[in-house]
């Protein structure tokens, strides 16, 4: 369980995180969604006590991070896979981490096995591919068998196989009853990973809701209709929001189900050439939602 209340972080005059309050519950994957520069990493660093909040606080299992005894046993985190000395072996890296929280050294071999790095345990971490480094980071997060896990953009730069592996891995962790908090700037990725979403933009909370609900609210279903009697149909649809698609002369109808349009047409003897229900695009919806809150906007 992670609880943030009024969390705020200023860097000089820049406000990175602005009065952010949210709760991350155990037993599910919670996505932390926002465009680049929205304050996701800063928030995660404050959860881990690495950055000091300007105001507000964040508690992990009811305690401030600094109050946790042997924190790696409560919170595991992968904020940046590059936080490893390149000349140190994967195993040596995990060994000092384990030692610092009195975690037995056999656990090091266990987590290496879990992420599939046993074969390369003695190779220097600097020579690892991004996917391997990411796995080493996850091994480090799992070291203390923690209840709470934080991952910052864990699939960035990974190949599809690696993405799938991480996604399934996070689902397994949540199924075991752990709190899993994952950030991403891609809604499509989060839609497949997270059951719950916390959406932020420019450091402010935009929404905290279930992923399903968020997608339902954010996307609007439309129906494309083509017909030689389009004007007649348009009159019948009356109050519904209707717009012409100039490219192919189709009608785009919002707020009326395809079945209803079909029935209406049949009852009035209107010929339909196309009746095509379309799901709204997730990315479009997300962009719409965070448009005002994008930090670095390209002007075209």
């Amino acid at each position: 369980m992670i609880e943030a209340t009024g969390l705020t972080k200023h860097y000089g005059r820049t406000v990175a995180v602005d009065d952010l309050s949210f709760t991350v519950r155990p037993g599910r994957v919670t996505g932390f969604l926002g465009p680049n520069g929205a304050g996701k990493s800063t928030t995660m660093r404050m959860v881990l006590g690495l950055d000091r909040p300007t105001a507000g606080r964040v508690l992990v299992n009811g305690k401030r991070y600094a109050e946790l005894d042997q924190p790696l046993r409560t919170v595991g985190a992968l904020l940046d896979a590059k936080w490893v000395h390149p000349n140190r072996s994967a195993r040596a890296h995990l060994r000092w981490l384990a030692k610092s929280n009195r975690i037995p050294v056999r656990r090091v071999d266990e987590v290496l096995e879990m992420v599939g790095l046993s074969q390369v345990a003695h190779r220097r971490a600097g020579g690892f591919s991004l996917g391997m480094a990411q796995r080493l980071g996850i091994a480090g997060a799992l070291l203390g068998d923690p209840e709470v896990l934080l991952f910052d953009e864990p699939v960035n730069g990974l190949d599809p196989e690696g993405i799938l592996w991480i996604r399934q891995f996070m689902h397994r962790l949540a199924e075991q009853g752990r709190t899993v908090f994952v950030s991403s700037h891609l809604l499509s990725e989060m839609a497949q990973t997270a059951q719950e979403l916390i959406v932020i933009g420019r450091g402010k909370l935009i929404a905290q809701t279930s992923t399903e609900q968020f997608i339902r609210d954010a996307t609007e279903d439309t129906v494309r209709v083509r017909s030689p009697q389009l004007d007649q149909l348009r009159a019948l649809l009356g109050g519904a929001r209707v717009e012409d698609s100039p490219a192919d002369g189709a009608l785009v109808v919002r707020g009326v189900e395809a079945a209803r349009i079909g029935e209406l047409a049949a009852a009035n003897g209107i010929v339909l050439h196309e009746l095509n229900p379309q799901r709204g695009s997730l990315e479009e919806a997300f962009m719409q939602l965070t448009k005002e809150s994008v930090e670095y906007q390209a002007h075209d």
Partner: peptide, 17 residues
């Protein structure tokens, strides 16, 4: 080098005092 490679963050994560 701990700052250069970010391991200082891992260190402070492990021992937050």
């Amino acid at each position: 080098t701990e700052y250069r490679f970010g391991t200082i963050k891992a260190t402070f994560q492990a021992v937050p005092d």
